[in-house]
Amino acid sequence: MPLPATAPPTLSAIGFDADDTLWHNERYFRAAQTRFEELMVDFLPAEDLGARLLLTEARNIRHYGFGAKSFALSMIETAIEVSGGAVPAPVIAEILAAGREILSHPVELLPHVGDTLDALAGRYRLILVTKGDLIDQERKLDASGLRDMFDAIEIVPHKHPETYRSVFARHAEGAGRAMMVGNSLVSDVLPMLAAGGYGTHVPHETTWALERAEPPVANPRYAGIGDLAALPALVSGLRG
């Protein structure tokens, strides 16, 4: 959905999420969860186990943050809980191995990433704003080959309105003249809108349940696009 023609042409900076916006990520968490469900099948059916794991993840975010290490800890905690402490040590070792695999997966860029960044570079300040484990996010960024495309890089523990106000105040002309682009309505779009900026949703084929929300279609600073190829045309209408 394009932004209304009446939107003020004030855009000067664009922030990009990383995981499942620039490169695939959630598919590796899904693979680890499938392995976890196979390992724990004697204790709970896969559907029920997945629901319990999601509850554990939501509870642990404030303690462990986001990323593969947090996910691995949540899998182990869930395994202990649903088994009443009877989960065998070899199963715990397998769960840890599944978590480590997430930390070494290859980085595969999503379609149109390179061309889109090339088209926007020099016209707007490009800022990477991603959350998660610092070491893992740095690894993926280096493997992506995209580091030099960005004017600034921020790896943050959470994405709140104040996060975006602070990031775009430091690296650009404030959130009001910036757009955040990402696959998560919860983390990339809604808090950016609350900060006074523009939020553009680029859906991914797999999105973590805790990152889903209803699109804020009534907000004039919201847009939804099918993929990143549509972004240059969208933002060009916001620049005077």
Rank of each mutant, 00 (worst) to 15 (best):
V87D: 01
E26T: 10
A18G: 14
R100S: 13
S70N: 12
E26Y: 06
E205A: 15
R35K: 12
G174C: 08
M75G: 04
V107I: 10
R27H: 12
E77C: 00
V41Q: 14
E47N: 14
V87I: 06
T6N: 05
P9I: 08
A7F: 04
D115Y: 00
H201L: 02
A18F: 14
L238S: 02
A209L: 14
T56G: 00
Y164K: 07
T163G: 03
D227N: 15
F150T: 12
P90S: 07
L185N: 03
I127R: 10
G174N: 11
V82A: 00
L228T: 12
M179Q: 06
T200D: 00
A46G: 04
S166L: 09
I92S: 01
R27V: 15
G197W: 01
T130H: 03
T206R: 13
D17Q: 03
D118W: 01
F29Q: 06
V113N: 05
M180Q: 10
G237E: 05
V235S: 02
R52S: 14
S83F: 01
G85H: 10
A230W: 08
P191Q: 09
A121N: 08
A143M: 13
S74E: 12
H158C: 00
H171A: 01
D118N: 13
R147Q: 09
F168R: 04
G15P: 09
G65Q: 07
L55N: 14
A86G: 00
Y124S: 04
L234T: 07
V87R: 04
L190H: 14
A172K: 12
T78N: 01
G50L: 02
T163D: 04
D227C: 12
T78H: 01
G85R: 12
R52A: 15
P157C: 05
G67P: 06
E77N: 06
F150D: 11
L128R: 11
H63F: 10
E214F: 00
R165N: 06
L231Y: 08
A32K: 04
P2V: 12
L238K: 09
D227F: 07
L109F: 08
I76M: 10
